[in-house]
Computed example of a mutant assay.
Amino acid sequence: MQDKVVLVTGAASGIGAAAARRFAAEGARVVLADINETAGTALAAALGGHFVVVDVTREDQIERAVARTVELHGRLDCMINNAGVVGAVGSLLETTAQAWRATQAVLLDSVFYGIKHAARQMREQRSGVILSVSSIAGVMGGLGPHAYTAAKHGVIGLTRSAAAELSQYGIRVNAVAPGTTVTPLVEQVRGGREAAMEGAKQVSPLGSALLPEEIAASLLYLASDAAAHVTAHTLVVDSGVTAGGFASGASVLRDRPSTFIGPSGTA
C-alpha cells in the first residue's frame, strides 16, 4: 500500500480508526472522514494524515471528502465505507419510520454515496478499490435489529451490483462482514469493555473476541494487489459465529425497548 491514497469514513473510532492506523503503517496516504471532529483530527495528526469532517448521510459532504482527497493527493486508490450506528432497535411492530430512515441513511445511503463518488474519480484513473463494511447481520437474519439487518443486507447487494458495473473501469468492489467486534459502540451496547469482550467470546466457536485491528487486516488484504482478482465478494470475518447455528442468540438487542442507538439528534 506504499503511497496509495485511502479515504476512510467513520475513521475516528472502532474499525475505521483501526483501518486508518493499519493502512498508514503500510505506507498509505490516509484521509480520515468522520462526524467526530475532535477525535478524527487528533488521530489524523498522529498518523500524519488529513481529516475531513463529514456527515455521511449528506451526499454533498461525501462528494466533498472525495474531492478534498484528490485535491491533496491527486488520486483516490481505495475508498472504505465504514461509518455506522446501531440505529433503530426493538420490536419491528414499534419501530418508527423516522428511526428506520435514520438507520438506512447512515448504514446504506452513505455506502451508495461513497461508491458513487469514489467510482467517478476511479473511472478517470481506470483503477481503484471500493470496500464497504457490512456485518454478519447482512448474511443471515436474527443477529441484529431489523433496520440494521436490512441495511447490512443492502450493503452486500449493492456491492455485488456495483462490482458488475464498475469492473469495466478496472475498479474492484468488495465488502467485509464482521462478526461482533469489540468497538466503542459495541462496548456502549454491552455496558462496558469487559462485558463486550466476554459476550463476543461466548458466541464464538473459537472462544475469541474479534478486535477492530483484525477487521482492518481483512480490509488491507482486499485493498492490496494480493486480491487483484477478487471483486463482488463479501469476506465474512466472524470467528465462526455464523457456522453450524452458533449465531443463535448472538444479538443482545432482540428484546430491547424501541429506541435509537447512535449520535444524539440522528433520529
Rank of each mutant, 00 (worst) to 15 (best):
A267Q: 03
A97P: 00
H73W: 05
V85Y: 01
S167V: 10
S167I: 11
N174K: 04
G207T: 13
Y113W: 15
A223H: 01
A46L: 04
A18K: 13
V237A: 01
R193H: 08
G142K: 05
S239G: 12
A247M: 05
D77F: 11
E194I: 12
G16K: 11
V8F: 02
A217N: 08
S161Y: 05
S161W: 09
F260E: 02
G84I: 03
Q168F: 00
A137W: 05
K4L: 07
T181E: 00
Q104C: 11
A24S: 13
Q188P: 04
T183F: 08
T266S: 15
A20L: 06
T96S: 12
D225S: 02
P212M: 01
F260P: 00
L131W: 08
V54N: 04
V6L: 07
P263T: 00
G10D: 00
L43Y: 01
G191C: 10
V241W: 00
L7P: 03
S218D: 04
I35M: 15
G170T: 00
V241M: 02
A177S: 10
N174Y: 08
R120A: 13
H73T: 03
T180G: 10
H146R: 03
T95K: 05
A18M: 11
E198R: 12
T38W: 05
M79N: 00
S127D: 14
R190H: 13
R190W: 15
L107H: 09
L43P: 10
